[in-house]
């Protein structure tokens, strides 16, 4: 309906920690602060699934967080994008085979982008978000055709 060129300029993020060690969470917070300042791309941390467009998920999904993650995903209106930040969110690796871990965000909800690194560097997350904005634009265009 509205040109995707406009809509892609305003990705609002939701950050949810599903059992990470805090390392990636800190780097996501570092993104909002003067050195990295993702507000340049229009990104704002909304912390509310109903306002969010991009979900930044950190951590291997623990059994207790699993249900909450699915809830958050369902509450986010379309078109949305899920970015798994860090190794453990991508495939659960440092915590592989732990009894309370599902192992990776993609075991629970569909993931669009994976950010490697333990913990992933802010530059990597920023790169993922910028790529994600491109993917999001394609998603918006596909939504528009439907």
């Amino acid at each position: 309906m509205i040109s995707a060129k406009w809509t892609k300029r305003s990705p609002w993020i939701l950050h949810f920690d599903t059992g990470s060690c805090n390392g990636c969470d800190l780097e996501i917070w570092a993104l909002l602060t003067p050195r990295y300042d993702v507000e340049r791309f229009g990104m704002v941390n909304k912390a509310n699934p109903k306002h969010a467009d991009i979900l930044l998920i950190t951590g291997p999904v623990t059994r207790k967080a699993e249900e909450r993650l699915v809830n958050l995903y369902n509450q986010t209106p379309d078109p949305k994008l899920v970015i798994a930040c860090g190794d453990c969110a991508s495939n659960g690796v440092p915590f592989f085979d732990c009894y309370n871990v599902c192992g990776g965000v993609d075991k629970v909800i569909p993931v669009d982008l994976y950010v490697p690194g333990c913990s992933c560097r802010p530059e990597a997350i920023m790169d993922a978000v910028v790529q994600g904005i491109q993917m999001w634009q394609e998603k918006v265009e596909r939504e528009g055709e439907r």
Binding site: S10, G42, D78
Partner: peptide, 20 residues
């Protein structure tokens, strides 16, 4: 910080009207 572009509120609005 550097901050968003001047047109940011319009981008936000455009996106909101395009969402589910």
């Amino acid at each position: 910080r550097v901050g968003p572009p001047l047109w940011q509120p319009f981008f936000d609005l455009a996106k909101l009207f395009d969402k589910e």
